[in-house]
Design a protein around this nucleic acid. Structure first.
Lengths: 190, 190
DNA sequence: GAAACTGTGTGACCTACATCACAATTGAAA
DNA sequence: TTTCAATTGTGATGTAGGTCACACAGTTTC
């Protein structure tokens, strides 16, 4: 399937744009490819874009003072990713984004997103619903952190995204769950 | 200050509505008061509304199978609260909402919000930005959970919302931080 | 002014998970 | 195929924070 069709199918689930509107909408996206391990957003960068994943897996993450990594999100095909705080506020990136596998993405600048939201009411509708979905998901994960131990969080993650298990190194899964890789290893060997 | 002015000032920070547009916007809100301890949304309820706080303090929370409470959000004046998952999806509430103090709120039904978003482009803009802010805040809190111990999370919370300390029982602060009340007590007595 | 309730402090003990150290395995590069 | 790095497994030990138990406020209720 072509990038344009992938995005169109995705957007049409929450907003109705006419074909001409969608053509215009799509014309603001830039197609890019990245290699496994490549950095898309690095800490301290100016953040211009958000990214729609066509193929491959990304991770968005934070590194603390002890160089420990915490994964905020795995981004898979048809997911969006960026440092939304930096993108909306103009501040420098505190969240990084890079490629777990080779990846194809569509880039949309923050400026173009605002322009599209202004010019096409339906596109603002789309972004509102998408963001709300992200908000609800983040809240769910917060509750899971408070309520569940590492084992249950691990089972939850695998139940929701079984494909991750084969694609993503266990270290990264541990960073997502907020446990050490040693603990994770012990969890699924018992 | 009147409810209408409070809301107007709040909305105008992110969206420009004309006076007539705002009058129309405001006409969809219902003013309500609640007493300390009253439930606004209970588990299993059908969720029709979201709530804009005019005065007082609310909490949104989740109760697990062991009857342990986890607080997702304290809502203070000019904050919004609801079970957004239930409100957007039509499912029953899993998140409850009640009053820590006497409170005045403005209620907006999900239906009216969608109607307003349709009819007034600027109001959709407002809700997109508000939701994005919530999303970014939830992500920050997630990172804080992964990165910081209970003591630092406690200090962070007090630094951000000093008023909470006097208004909100320590038990609830513990539930927000995801620690037991005993641990919290030990944290600030040392 | 008892009585009952809600909120808080504090000690003793327990457990989930972190950390450190090193071995084993896999996988890419040469 | 050999080599080097990245990834994973596993034991020993440390610790933050949970749980239970009980004491001691304030505050509301009759």
């Amino acid at each position: 399937m072509q990038p344009k069709e992938i995005l169109k199918e995705h957007v049409s689930k929450t907003a109705s744009l006419t074909d001409e509107q969608f053509d215009y909408f799509f014309s603001h996206f830039t197609y890019k490819t990245f290699k496994k391990g490549q950095t898309i957003i690095g800490e301290g960068d100016k953040v211009d874009c958000e990214y729609f994943v066509l193929s491959g897996y990304l991770k968005s993450f934070f590194i603390n003072d002890d160089m420990k990594m915490f994964i905020l999100q795995f981004a898979m095909p048809t997911w969006w990713a960026s440092d939304y705080n930096a993108l909306y506020s103009g501040e420098r990136a505190t969240i990084s984004l890079d490629c777990i596998t080779d990846a194809e993405v569509l880039c949309l600048t923050g400026q173009d997103r605002e322009k599209l939201c202004n010019e096409i009411h339906a596109s603002e509708h789309f972004f509102r619903w998408r963001t709300n979905k992200g908000y609800v998901a983040a809240q769910k994960r917060l509750l899971s952190f408070m309520n569940n131990n590492a084992k249950r969080r691990y089972e939850e993650l695998l139940a929701q995204y079984p494909t991750l298990y084969n694609v993503v190194p266990k270290q990264l899964i541990a960073s997502y769950l907020g446990v050490s890789r040693e603990t994770l290893s012990r969890l699924y060997h018992s």
